Amino acid sequence: MVRVAPINLTFNPKTLWFDPGELEIEKDMPVVVRTARGTEFGIAASEVIEVPEEQVRALKSALRPVERIATEEDVERAREMEEKSRDALPIFKEMAREAHEDMHPVSVEFLLDGDKAVFYFEAEERI
């Protein structure tokens, strides 16, 4: 059996599994995780669970680590990035309107480090 931490990230509708290492994680606990995109803030969907090794091997990629239980500074930083994301959306909408009328901005997400932003939009055709 393999220990996994089910974590919910803000802009991902799925609960993702991470390697908790030796951390004891409880449901609803804020955590900092490492993803392919960078450092992200998440909330534990449940306590650490044990799953069969076959399930972990069947995943598309190896389990990424839970870096740490979020500190108060991490929680505050996540709030700041959420606010920065909300503030960026009207600017994104204006830029999209000028660049391509078929681009419909949905949201902006700043990762926890603040050094990367992801811009989400809808369009009938590829833009």
Rank of each mutant, 00 (worst) to 15 (best):
W17C: 04
V4F: 12
R64N: 04
L59G: 11
P6F: 06
R37C: 05
L89N: 10
E73R: 13
E47S: 15
V33E: 12
A58N: 14
P90S: 00
R37F: 10
V4H: 09
E94S: 14
V51I: 12
E40A: 07
E76F: 01
N8H: 07
F121S: 11
L9N: 10
L112Q: 12
R79A: 11
V4G: 15
R64F: 05
V32C: 10
A45H: 03
A123R: 06
I7G: 10
K60E: 12
E82M: 06
K93E: 10
V66W: 04
M103K: 06
I49Q: 15
K84Y: 14
V108R: 03
D115T: 03
H104C: 04
E22N: 14
A78V: 08
L112W: 13
D74Y: 07
A44Q: 09
F92M: 01
I43Y: 01
F92V: 03
A78S: 15
R68V: 13
L59V: 15
M81F: 05
A96Q: 02
G114Q: 09
G21M: 14
P90F: 00
V32S: 06
A70L: 00
V118S: 07
T15H: 09
P105Q: 02
M81S: 00
P52Y: 04
R126K: 08
E40G: 06
F18E: 06
D113Q: 10
A45T: 06
V48Y: 12
L63F: 08
A5E: 15
A88T: 14
A96S: 13
E125T: 00
A117D: 15
